[in-house]
């Protein structure tokens, strides 16, 4: 799964730490999410999208494979 979290986060001027605080997760979780190394639950994905002011499908892009 690809994500555009970093791009959206940078647009809002948020650090990983700040986003983690808003969403209620650890900073490492944000790091792994941004690198596409962790697939979030629907709830977490929705919380992140809301925090970044975007739709889930704009931020998380599913690969076909």
């Amino acid at each position: 799964m690809k994500t555009r979290m970093k791009e959206y986060r940078a647009r809002l001027g948020l650090t990983q730490e700040q986003l983690a605080e808003i969403v209620g997760v650890r900073r490492e979780t944000i790091i792994f999410l941004e690198k596409g190394k962790y697939n979030p639950s629907l709830k977490l994905a929705s919380n992140i999208a809301r925090a970044l002011g975007a739709c889930i499908e704009d931020i998380f892009i599913l690969n076909d494979e």
Binding site: A20, G24, V25, R26, E28, T29, F32, Y38, P40, S41, K43, L44
Partner: peptide, 8 residues
């Protein structure tokens, strides 16, 4: 205490 999120 550290946050225990879904990944943890």
């Amino acid at each position: 205490l550290p946050v225990i999120d879904e990944r943890v």
